[in-house]
């Protein structure tokens, strides 16, 4: 992450994302596949790390094997096989959504995972109680714990979508795009930017 100044001196925190160039590696049409979609690929892979099936699939688009592929249904831009999609499809000031996988936090308690407030100062002499969840339901009625009761467990590593982010700046020669605020995931993780 970094930050950028506007002309009146306001500082905006922003994330640098390397957006593309994404190669069109497959074009699906209604006639051949029953639906229309574009398969985009990103990130070069060494030949010794790819299977023959991958190499031949990407060879149709005249590119070396790629690390990541993603299919986009009913893509609004008409592209042929082997063409690239770059940051040119975005302009500065665009509202975008970013989809990614959040950082895994491991097994976490209810205070961190669900924002419970904990017991606080007054535990009335009990110990090991300050971050406990409290009651999880009644006793003989309903005689069970309701589904979806918020408890401790694995946190993070979820696919989330952040809405209302803005494209702050674009460096077209390096395919870098600066998006306001933070995006899900650790440094170097793969995210999806959509308008």
């Amino acid at each position: 992450m970094t930050s950028i100044f506007s002309t009146d001196g306001k500082q905006t925190a922003c994330t640098i994302i390397e957006a593309g160039p994404n190669v069109v590696t497959q074009v699906k049409t209604k006639e051949s596949d029953g639906y229309s979609a574009l398969q985009l690929a990103f990130g070069d892979k060494k030949e010794k790390h790819s299977t023959k099936a991958e190499i031949n699939h990407f060879a149709k688009a005249n590119t070396p094997a790629k690390k990541f592929t993603k299919e986009f249904r009913d893509y609004s831009i008409e592209k042929a096989l082997g063409e690239t999609i770059t940051v040119d499809i975005f302009t500065e000031g665009d509202d975008v959504e970013v989809i990614g996988t959040t950082k895994g936090k491991g097994f976490q308690g209810v205070v961190k995972r669900h924002g419970f407030s904990g017991v606080g100062e007054q535990s009335h002499g009990q110990h090991d109680r300050s971050r406990a969840p409290g009651s999880i339901g009644g006793s003989s009625y309903p005689a069970r714990v309701f589904k979806g009761m918020r408890m401790a467990g694995r946190m993070g590593n979820d696919r989330v979508k952040l809405k209302g982010l803005k494209v702050v700046k674009i460096f077209a020669e390096k395919n870098y795009i600066l998006i306001s605020g933070s995006v899900p995931g650790h440094n170097g993780s793969i995210v999806l930017i959509q308008k």
Partner: peptide
């Protein structure tokens, strides 16, 4: 990437 953007900004 961060270094490049810093140099530009």
């Amino acid at each position: 990437a961060v270094k490049f953007v810093h140099d530009q900004l």
